[in-house]
């Protein structure tokens, strides 16, 4: 189950939007292999009859009433924007060239 390859890491890095150099991919692959080996034990710990716990303290039905609250101004919204134009966040092209 473990044995994480450089290609595996490259795929994960693409999913996670982390550009990585060849050297980084190699290092990460070997580090992850060790870590994953040591944590793979979890798959043997619990049988099928054990339910999963996603929240440590079980709560249900926490809701908000449908009442408008305070909003940010456009200036506040754009305060930390790396780039903006016309009151909107500006981002580079989504597609490459034509």
């Amino acid at each position: 189950m473990s044995a994480i390859s450089r290609d595996d890491v490259a795929h994960l890095a693409r999913l996670a939007h982390l550009e990585m150099s060849e050297a980084e991919l190699e290092t990460m692959a070997s580090e992850l292999a060790v870590i994953v080996d040591s944590i793979a034990v979890v798959s043997e710990a619990a049988g099928d009859d054990v339910p999963a716990t996603s929240h440590p303290i079980p709560l249900t039905n926490v809701f908000r009433e449908d009442v408008v609250g305070q909003t940010l101004t456009q200036e506040e919204a754009l305060l930390n924007a790396p780039d903006s134009e016309d009151g909107r966040f500006k981002v580079p092209a989504i597609l490459d060239g034509e």
Binding site: I4, V36, V50, P51, A52
Partner: peptide, 27 residues
């Protein structure tokens, strides 16, 4: 490191063995 590890644990084909099992350990 943690982002890559987490992406791995949640990715298709590994979720049940890793994230799913870990949630059971929590129980």
């Amino acid at each position: 490191r943690r982002i890559i590890l987490g992406t791995y644990a949640l990715s298709a084909g590994y979720y049940d063995a890793y994230y799913g099992s870990a949630q059971k350990v929590r129980t």
